[in-house]
Design a protein around this nucleic acid. Structure first.
Lengths: 390, 390
DNA sequence: CATTTTCGTGAAACCGATTTCGGTTGTTTA
DNA sequence: TAAACAACCGAAATCGGTTTCACGAAAATG
């Protein structure tokens, strides 16, 4: 009720012009005083004095609006004016303050990514490249990357909520998508832009970038089959993630194309660390009719498998062939060096950033889907089978 | 003057209540229309409808200023009012938009970190932990972390300039400080808060967190000397960085305390990768009177040294003892497992974030300096010398 | 009982940008 | 020559908050 009254008062159209003029004067003078005081305080508190758009306008003798439009490429500014404005702005060292822009435009020019800190999975080693890719692409358009971590999946979700509520970022990159992903559910409902690294169960309203890992797995199987292997095992990653699902599919497609039967007993799951790989590998190698080759969905697991093989006096590359996926640096230094599909994480980061920026700018999610490829790095962990009698 | 006018208006005792009622209606309806239109546009452009401070004030029948002050803990708001405001704000799901606050307060509540992407040095493996630490501490106070990368040192500097010019961040964390660091020079001059990870040549106006690596190196030497080693070599990292300087000092102090002479020929520098380590190690192992133990400043170099030793048929742990520094995961899986000083990168991140936030809030840099410690993880790469006849 | 403080609050200025809306000019067109 | 129309630009509103300042009422003081 009270504010109603004020609203009405506000609407009343006003009073003598002369009076207004005088008031302006007064205010202006007051303003000046305050300004200098402000600078003074600034000096004491260690803040910088920024060049604002007002300063530029003043020094050019134009209005703020003209300067703003000139700088932002509006069509109703004369080319000559634009040039002049741009030059002086540059000379004066004027850089628009992003948050001041943000409050009007609704864009903070920042991409968000929330990492799950407890995920022991592979992503750590290539985090640097991945971030580099994102940041690189983002910088091109003067965007920034805000990264945050959370100790567990729930924390990830609440961090995402916080960041989008406070509008600290314009959209999210979601690494390691699950088949059923709560982050996706939330963001879709909240209508916040995002792009996934990896696919998910229900693609509606989702853009994504992913590596065609199923193709890689398929190629791995076919390569081994081509060498003469008949019993090819598979050690998969965490099955709740989408990547594990598609990699298994790739493995099966490979077997099919090679004319080999799929055998449950040759498949192990949820191996993403050395220890996991050692355990899973042990199981496969202890089978009465053990596989002569094993495809791994994750490099670290493959390295664990090395240990399991060594414990059983099997020589990798001859007694047992291994082809893996990820292309981490350690693989190169294992003995024998690991044959693996390498993924370009920097490129992935770049693509994701690119897609997300497009998404934020309004592109439809259905148009924002890309599949990259992994490259086989042939080293020494695979070869024709040595014991072979079927 | 103008406010006089407003005062007068305030005094006017009012208008037909019916009218007021009507206006309210109208306003309300207009409001609604605009609102729905906004949502509509929002839908198309992917924006959310936020709850603003105005909404909260309106629904409480108070002014924006009261709400703001209540939420920010000003002392001139009645406790009862504060409570009421806080409750409704929470219920309505009001989250202040950071950039709107920033424009007035001058704080965006964001820490910046610019990484050098080409630096092959050790920082990659533990980047995840490090970031986790920073982010964790930052989140506590509702701050965020903005990370950016640049392809080379010059790019790092210009990225820092950009971020601070646009005021996208309130301060910086500087990883891997050099002895003479241009970033420090710039930030000091520009009066932008920062905290270094590592010390630097000229400490004035600088706060930092660092690990006491010199102490670790000293301990390593003393441990080896205590086992009976007389010729202890040293493989250092990149000498332009501060860390290499202090680690060398630690090595020398250790020798001194053990009563051993310093010998130039036993020291190699600039080894930060496996390849570097292999080369440097080769040089040391090919000396006519080779060292029986080697201290490495960087784990990756130590792993390279493994290769050099293997090539010369030296058994690590007996023929050659190695103690290194970093505590990377691969060390655990090397054979023999690497004895190394492990640094807690998560904790480092937390400390740095903490210091930086304090710095931004006005603490003097001299009061913001902390030294952490590295923990020796004893594994199997060191032991008493086997050939020993002096 | 008059006067000064304190307390609690609202109005309006302010932060630094963008964007809407009109108002001058100078050119074309009728 | 008047009217219509661009092309250019400025004033003011706007975004979502914070902060200053004045003011009314209640409490404390003289």
């Amino acid at each position: 009720m009270r504010w109603d009254f004020w609203k009405i008062l506000q609407k009343i159209k006003v009073q003598p012009v002369a009076e207004t003029g005088f008031v302006t004067q007064t205010l202006a003078r007051e303003d000046a005083v305050q300004k200098s005081d402000h600078i003074d305080r600034a000096g004491r508190q260690g803040k910088k004095t920024r060049v604002t758009i007002k300063d530029v306008a003043l020094s050019l003798g134009m209005s703020k609006s003209t300067v703003s439009r000139a700088l932002n490429g509006y069509s109703d500014i004369a080319e000559s004016t634009r040039l002049k404005v741009k030059r002086t702005a540059h000379v004066m060292g004027y850089k628009p303050m992003v948050q001041a822009q943000a409050i009007r435009t609704g864009l903070v020019r920042s991409l968000g990514m929330v990492l799950n800190a407890d995920s022991h999975d592979g992503h750590r080693p290539f985090l640097a490249d991945f971030i580099d890719g994102i940041s690189r692409r983002a910088s091109e358009d003067n965007w920034t990357l805000t990264v945050s971590t959370a100790p567990h999946a729930l924390g990830v979700l609440s961090t995402i909520e916080r960041l989008s509520n406070e509008h600290s970022v314009d959209g999210f990159i979601l690494p390691r998508t699950r088949i059923e992903d709560p982050r996706v559910r939330y963001l879709v409902k909240a209508n916040v832009p995002f792009i996934m690294f990896g696919r998910t169960g229900d693609d509606r309203d989702c853009g994504w970038y992913d590596i065609n890992a199923e193709l890689a797995m398929e190629k791995a199987v076919l390569r081994l089959a081509g060498m003469g292997h008949k019993r090819i095992g598979f050690i998969n990653g965490l099955t709740r993630y989408m990547y594990a699902k598609v990699r298994l599919e790739g493995y099966r497609t490979g077997l099919e194309k090679a004319g080999l039967a799929y055998d449950d007993r040759l498949v192990q799951i949820d191996a993403v660390t050395r220890k996991d790989g050692e355990r899973a590998g042990g199981v496969l190698l202890d089978l009465s009719r053990r596989p002569t080759a094993i495809v791994c969905a994750v490099d670290l697991a493959a390295l664990g498998l090395y240990k399991a093989a060594a414990a059983r006096y099997l020589t990798i590359g001859s007694d047992l062939s291994i082809i893996s996926y990820d292309g981490i640096a350690e693989g190169e230094y294992a003995s024998p060096p690991l044959t693996s599909f390498s993924v370009d994480n920097r490129k992935a980061g770049e693509c994701l950033a690119d897609l997300l920026i497009k998404r934020i700018r309004g592109a439809a999610p259905e148009t924002l889907r890309q599949l990259g490829e992994a490259d086989l790095i042939v080293r020494a962990s695979d070869g024709p089978p040595i014991i072979h009698s079927e």
